[in-house]
């Protein structure tokens, strides 16, 4: 799931400077689940912006709309009337949602309300951690199901660096050393000898380094 976090409200407030109203567009999928941009957060944000404006003596009103998925055009079409009538759109979608709204409503200013952070998992109420970096060439089969690209701070491919101590990464004590996790998993699976194989230099063109990517399923197009 894509994990995002709400921007600081002063940044949002500054982006809205000069607008007398906005439609706060929640997104009903990933960012709802990660409690950043669902209907509830949109309502909360709208209330805070309105009260803030009132206290500053500025005229501002916010309307809330929840779009099931801001990354699918049919759902954007459903919300068209309300979005076209908006003075500006404050999107609580991930970066994809914000851009898709801007693309589909070219006459509107679309402001991001979230910082999109990572692809991750939920580890309990209100806590998410990064698991995948979308590198485009998954090697989890070789590393016991623990990703060295996303979970090793240095994205090392052939074992830990010197900063690994007592299973933790040197960047901070809350971060597990991915290579410790890989080693422990492979040991448990009795496949340690597979780690002896040197992983060669990687072709990063499948990742961001190859420029913007597209996925295409010819069989269904």
């Amino acid at each position: 799931m894509i994990v995002a976090e709400q921007k600081n409200i002063d940044e949002i407030r500054d982006s809205l400077e000069g607008f007398k109203s906005a439609v706060v567009a929640a997104c009903g999928t990933c960012v709802t689940v990660c409690m950043a941009g669902g209907e509830k957060e949109a309502l909360r944000l709208a209330a805070v912006l309105e009260i803030g404006a009132r206290e500053r003596g500025v005229q501002f009103s916010a309307d809330v709309i929840c779009i099931t998925r801001q990354c699918d055009m049919e759902f954007l079409a459903e919300a068209e009337d309300k979005l076209l009538a908006a003075e500006c759109i404050l999107s609580l979608g991930c970066g994809a949602g914000v851009q898709f709204l801007a693309e589909k409503f070219p006459s509107k200013v679309v402001i991001p309300g979230l910082n999109t952070e990572f692809i991750g998992v939920n580890r309990g109420l209100g806590y998410w951690t990064e698991m995948c970096q979308g590198c485009g060439d998954c090697l989890l089969a070789k590393t016991g199901g623990v990703c060295p690209v996303a979970r090793c701070s240095k994205s090392n491919f052939n074992g830990p660096c010197g900063g690994s101590a007592l299973g933790k990464c040197e960047i901070n004590e809350d971060t597990d050393c991915a290579w410790q996790l890989i080693y422990d998993r492979m040991k448990r699976l009795d496949r340690l000898e597979e780690l002896l194989e040197i992983e060669g230099a990687r072709d990063w063109r499948t990742s961001r380094d190859g420029g913007p990517r597209a996925a295409c399923r010819e069989d269904v197009r």
Partner: peptide, 15 residues
Amino acid sequence: RLSFALERAGAGTGK
């Protein structure tokens, strides 16, 4: 959390 958000939104403190 609400107090923090309101302060950032320019509504001042102590609400």
